[in-house]
Design a protein around this nucleic acid. Sequence first.
DNA 1: GAGCACTGC
Length: 775
Amino acid sequence: MSDIRDNPYLAHMHGGAEAAGGARGSEPNKAFAALVPGKTTAAQQEATEDSDCSGLTGRAFSQKYKSILAKRRELPVNKQRQKFLDLVHSNQFVVLVGETGSGKTTQIPQYMVLDMLPHVEGKMIACTQPRRVAATSVAQRVADEMDVKLGQEVGYSIRFEDCTSARTVLKYCTDGMLLREAMSDNMLSRYSAVILDEAHERTLNTDVLMSLMKNIAAQRLDIKIVVMSATLDSEKFQKYFNDAPLLTVPGRTYPVEIYYTPEPEADYLEAAIKTALQIHASEPEGDILLFLTGEEEIEEACRLLRARGDDLIRRANCGPLLVVPLYSTLPPAMQQKIFSKAPEPRTKGGAPGRKIVVSTNVAETSLTIDGIVYVVDPGFAKQKVYNPRVRVESLLVSPISRAAAQQRAGRAGRTRPGKCFRLYTEKSFNSDLIEQTYPEILRSNLGSIVLQLKKLGINDLVHLDLMDPCAPEVLMRALELLHYLGALDDDANLTPLGLAISEFPIDPQLAKMVVSAADYGCTNEALSIAAMLSVPNVFLRPREAQRAADMAKAEFAHMDGDHMTLLNVYHAFKSCADPTQWCWDNFLQYRSLKSADSIREQLRRIAANNEIPLVSNDFNSPDYYPQIRKALTAGFFMQVAHLERNGQYLTVKDNQLVLLHPSSVLERKPEWVAYNEFALTKRHYIRTVTEVKPEWLLDIAPHYYDLESFPPCEGKRILEKIALRNTIFREEQDMKKRRKDKKDRKDREGKDKKDKKDKDKKVKKDKEKRHRSKD
DNA sequence: GAGCACTGC
């Protein structure tokens, strides 16, 4: 930090006028001196902003600053600045509801900075976002608004990238990042205030963070918490945060007219296509956004829209259509197409062209497309559900909530008034749809979350104060998993192993594999596999080139299974000359491999920091792959299936009937396999599968393969035989050892006797010698 | 013989 007296904000601490004047010459700035931390008024803040030079940098404000400032003053949130400050001054928690366009995300954090002057105490203000792009782009915008360089007084912090400095006063970060920080600083002592933005999205991280902030606030009366949300579901937030006061800020969007179908639609895909084409045929200019559930459905809809659109254009003299798909796994170049302009009329003065974007939920929150005037909403989305009984997370096409429907409709009113066509009845909207989507924490496996909570110092999970408490059975499953992995002891306290596992930002099973790999001399390989399993599928299989893609994949196939195949792919990726071209040639997703590489680097650094040796076995040793598979077993012994005599796999303990996923490279069916994922679709598949040995299971996870408590099945009988064989073998070894020990002891005793005799003889001789010499 | 909503550390 530069000299504290250079900072005009600190005027009140150093005799005001003198210090403030020092930064910019002779004229003292009264507005700076007037700011008293925690007691500023809107007028004082505005005066500070209107002055000639920045209180933070001491530099004169630029022309650009002044023009942005004029726009900032017109934002709806600015009209409520005084009210907001009053609430913050007299409350520890404030809930703020602001619709799109209110300016809350950019302005509220700045009001907080001016009010608290956190750097006086060497502290900061954090504003969390659920997504990385939001954290980075908003930070850039606010840096411009405050006339500072991004990364200096205003910065951001996201995975793989910390763009902050010792001067940083305001930090935008992902909520996951702040959680990680809390794991090493449980009281978040570096922050004088935390602003939680987009809280209505109720992501896993936001929910955990809200609970944590409540906990911290009870112990740190100096900290302020502002919770910002976009919905009207504010009462729930207020109640959760000890009856916090509410401030509502109007948004700035255009009206959207809503239309419902008079009768329920039997086939929503067909209805959606029809509706989109009808809009094209009869509504004025403006682009269409159509929400569907997944990649396959979207590609199918695009094909149909193009075909029928051509037909429509011929028959009804409509304008040309541009149909573009949008989903997250679409290559970035293809995603860019959503921003292209609608096509020109085919003849001068002819019917205008139109763009139709067919998208998943990405377009609901993550991506904003300008120029959308019409939204078609069939009312469905793929949603994650968790079944604790079989410990399986899966995706299910389900009806969306009223809040989500509202969010979708809002996408039509960003640039001018729009229309939203809902493909369900108004009655259905009111009586069938739930108010809010169930928060993610109620639909997820909590293994990793529970571990994080333990690390955050929250031990009493039963009384864990979440906005929506999770099901006891889900908590039980999480505790059970962590206990079996050895991350928690019998009293559910974090073990040293659990502490190590919690350092890694990956699934606990994967982290256990990495940590255990040290025992098998293969941490380097375990890190690569863990990274490859933490990114979206790397294998591409385009519909028009399935055979070619399969052949390309076969080149990487490893006889032991899919994990080793992934390792082959990673190694090949690292040693190829032109990664983009190479990925293209081999039907591999460049994005996923690139991201696996970054993750691996992060994991490697964490391993190094935790004194986990980074080692490999000799590649030419016959043990090279078995050792890696043993490390895999150490993490995934709970995800093992056994091939029954009828040719079907049963998962161990749960006795679920499963099939090897057709994408597996394992053509022969090994008797015992460990799997990464249980995929619940039309059938039950196990995906990413590698052969393991039953004796490893008994060796590596004896507490889980405790045969006394094992439900009966073929696998159990085989394990019992092996266990018996092991016992007999051990008995034999013991007997041999005992026999040998006995013999050794006898020999030793014999030798000792002889030694003693010899010694005695020697002593006698010596004595005699001495006697003789005396004489 | 078949998927893969979306995020995040």
